[in-house]
């Protein structure tokens, strides 16, 4: 029953399989970039995808951002007032949103709202042989279908993260200043004194752009690579959400350790 050689073989097969998939994904990424020219020249295609993954994600991003901000306001006030520094609430809310929560939570929501939809769309196109039909008509499916969706996601993601952070800060202000009664002037001035444009805001935007590339690439690749059956598409969607979430959290750790290392 228990055979060490067999076990090692399983391990090896698993590793080979994963490295192989990673290689396929990288080649797919390069091919996608090479054929993006057409997608960007025929910009109505990309515009439709910005509408699909950006505009349609607005509601969930704005509402989640507001609630995350409200919770940060309540919890932050409760902790900070123990040390008599409730005025630092603005700083706490703004920094935690701009540096971490904005890009990461917006990225996770984007992966589950837009990434899964992109995978489902491309996977279903493949299952119903629409992609093969396009190929037959000498229309390149990567340029016509995949690239616009990829760029739509890449463009939408930083904007969504910025909106998430803005809504969160508004939520923190609503709880802190309007409901609890932290001083309005101190809330904003302490925030402005400690938030640096380049260090905090631009690094946050950069993070969200990296997450946008990662999530969009995973979504289009899983769709394009899915088995052309109902079960295959559903598995591909699951993989998109799981892989995107793991990729966002892992990339976030790496980026944070490079960007904010001066603090330690």
């Amino acid at each position: 029953m228990f055979n060490p050689v067999e076990l090692l073989r399983h391990l090896g097969a698993g590793v080979v399989e994963r490295v192989w998939r990673l290689g396929v994904a990288s080649r797919f990424f390069v091919a996608l970039l090479l054929r993006s020219g057409t997608a960007l020249r025929r910009y109505p295609l990309t515009l439709r995808e910005i509408w699909f993954s950006g505009v349609l994600s607005l509601i969930i991003i704005l509402v989640s951002g507001l609630f995350v901000g409200l919770v940060l306001g309540l919890q932050g006030y409760e902790i900070l007032q123990r040390y008599g520094s409730a005025e630092a609430l603005g700083t706490m809310v703004a920094l935690s949103l701009l540096r971490e929560l904005g890009p990461v939570v917006a990225g996770l929501l984007f992966a589950s709202r837009a990434g899964s939809a992109i995978t489902a769309e491309i996977g279903l196109m493949k299952a119903t042989e629409q992609l093969t039909a396009m190929d037959m008509m000498a229309v390149d499916p990567v340029a016509r279908v995949v690239a616009p969706r990829f760029w739509g996601g890449v463009i939408s993601m930083p904007l969504l993260a910025a909106l998430f952070s803005t809504m969160g800060i508004f939520g923190g202000w609503l709880i802190g200043v309007v409901f609890i009664g932290v001083d309005d002037g101190a809330f904003w001035s302490q925030m402005q004194a400690s938030v640096d444009f380049r260090y905090d805001i631009l690094n946050g935007v950069l993070k969200s752009a990296v997450f946008g590339v990662a999530v969009s690439l995973i979504a289009v690749f899983e769709g394009y690579d899915s088995a052309p059956t109902a079960e295959g598409v559903s598995r591909a969607i699951t993989r998109t959400v799981v892989t995107s979430a793991l990729a966002i959290l892992a990339l976030d750790f790496v980026l944070t350790s490079f960007m904010f290392r001066e603090l330690s």
Binding site: L47, I50, G54, S156, A162, L163, Q192, V195, F197, R198
Partner: peptide
């Protein structure tokens, strides 16, 4: 569709501007 995308991009950039001007300070830059 164009209108919605334009609206989305406009409020997105508006949010970035808000973060840059109201939340952050240009003092370091």
């Amino acid at each position: 569709l164009d209108l919605w995308v334009g609206f989305f991009v406009a409020i997105g950039i508006g949010a970035l501007l808000f973060l840059a001007l109201k939340v952050g300070s240009f003092a370091g830059v």
